[in-house]
Simulated scan of single mutants.
Amino acid sequence: MELTSSITQVTVPARQGRAVRVRAGDLVRVSTPRGAQVGDLFAFVSGDLTEHLSASHTRGHVNRLFPEVGEQFVTTRRRPVLTLVEDTSPGRHDMLIPACDPERYRQLGHTGQHASCAENLTTALRELGIGITTVPQPVNVFMDIRAAPNGELEWRSSPAAAGAAVTFRAELDCVVVVSACPQDLVGINGTETGPLLIEIGTAP
């Protein structure tokens, strides 16, 4: 799907996050320029940050672990906030795993400071003058988590090739945040962490 020439592009540097304001009807494309980079995606309804994209409500809404193209992500009030309109990746995304945070890295044996998606979220929102008290569970685009027959989760490297992208249509005015996941202790991001790209436009 082509976007119009009036596209806003925001680079999300490796291990960092960025927030963008979008209006209902805008298209939001998230791509992995190098491939195999997971992105934690959040969306907060403009004017009421207590209403936000909810992975758990979306699972119930679409009766799937991740919606197919044409299906919707809903908020904590069960209103559609984003619709998945195109996916050029292998379609492996995740709505089970919470955002990584400092405690997660401590439990994995890391000592000292380590970037995390939870902190990237709050930092990115703070740059827009927005504060939150709770980190929602994100939609983890390009993240390949599978359930084994015994119920255990398998953490696989992202299969997204260089340039793979997912495109969403905003159904509500909202603030979208994308974190280029800094996880380097579990092999979800290929051989190294990398950047992501956010593009905002409209359909021609």
Rank of each mutant, 00 (worst) to 15 (best):
R92H: 15
A55S: 15
T193I: 15
D144R: 09
G151K: 11
Q9M: 05
V20K: 01
V20H: 03
E119A: 08
L53E: 00
S6H: 11
P13T: 12
L121R: 08
R92D: 12
Y105C: 05
Q37W: 14
R104D: 09
V139M: 09
D48Y: 08
V81K: 02
I132A: 00
T32G: 05
Q72E: 05
T76Q: 12
P98C: 15
Q16I: 05
F142T: 10
L41A: 12
R106F: 12
P33V: 01
L96N: 05
G129C: 02
L108Q: 11
D48R: 15
R21I: 06
I130W: 02
R23G: 08
G187W: 09
R18S: 14
L172E: 13
T4R: 15
L153M: 13
S89F: 07
G91Y: 12
D26Q: 15
G60W: 11
L3N: 00
E2N: 11
V176C: 02
T11R: 07
I97C: 12
T11W: 00
F73W: 12
E192G: 06
L197T: 15
M143S: 14
Q107R: 13
Q137C: 14
D173M: 11
G109T: 11
S89D: 07
G194M: 04
I188W: 09
T11L: 09
V141W: 06
L82N: 13
M1S: 10
G17P: 09
N63W: 14
L3Q: 06
G151Q: 13
E192C: 12
C181A: 05
E2T: 06
L128T: 01
V186D: 01
I145L: 05
L172S: 02
R78H: 08
P136Q: 01
R126H: 08
N120P: 02
I200N: 10
V175K: 03
R34N: 09
A36T: 11
V141R: 07
A14P: 07
A36G: 01
V38S: 00
E51S: 14
V175P: 00
I97G: 01
Q72K: 13
P136A: 10
A115M: 01
